[in-house]
């Protein structure tokens, strides 16, 4: 595969975003199942606690993960 081919390079950008999204979903879930706080997860991800809560709380509650208080 030729990395100077823009079509392939742009496709790689999309593929990397999808990979980052998949990893974020699974690893935030792992952390919360292990009893991490929202603040700790947010600090590692470099985002606000509110941002990570807004993005993941509903999914994790639906998945039956016991969440610590914010």
């Amino acid at each position: 595969m030729d990395p100077t081919d823009p079509a392939a390079g742009l496709a790689a950008v999309v593929a990397l975003r999808r990979l980052a999204d998949r990893l974020e979903d699974s690893q935030v879930e792992q952390a919360m199942r292990a009893g991490w706080s929202w603040s700790d997860v947010a600090e590692v991800l470099g985002v606000t606690r509110q941002a990570v809560h807004k993005k993941h709380a509903a999914r994790l509650i639906a998945a039956g993960v016991a969440l610590r208080r914010r």
């Binding site: 595969m1 950008v13 990979l19 998949r22 935030v28 509903a58 999914r59 994790l60 639906a62 998945a63």
Partner: peptide, 23 residues
């Protein structure tokens, strides 16, 4: 497409998150 960026991944082996119906 990941390989273009030098990332070697077997998709079937990636960790999965619990998918969300309400998303």
């Amino acid at each position: 497409s990941l390989a273009v960026a030098g990332v070697t991944v077997t998709v079937a082996e990636l960790p999965r998150a619990t998918s969300e119906r309400g998303r």
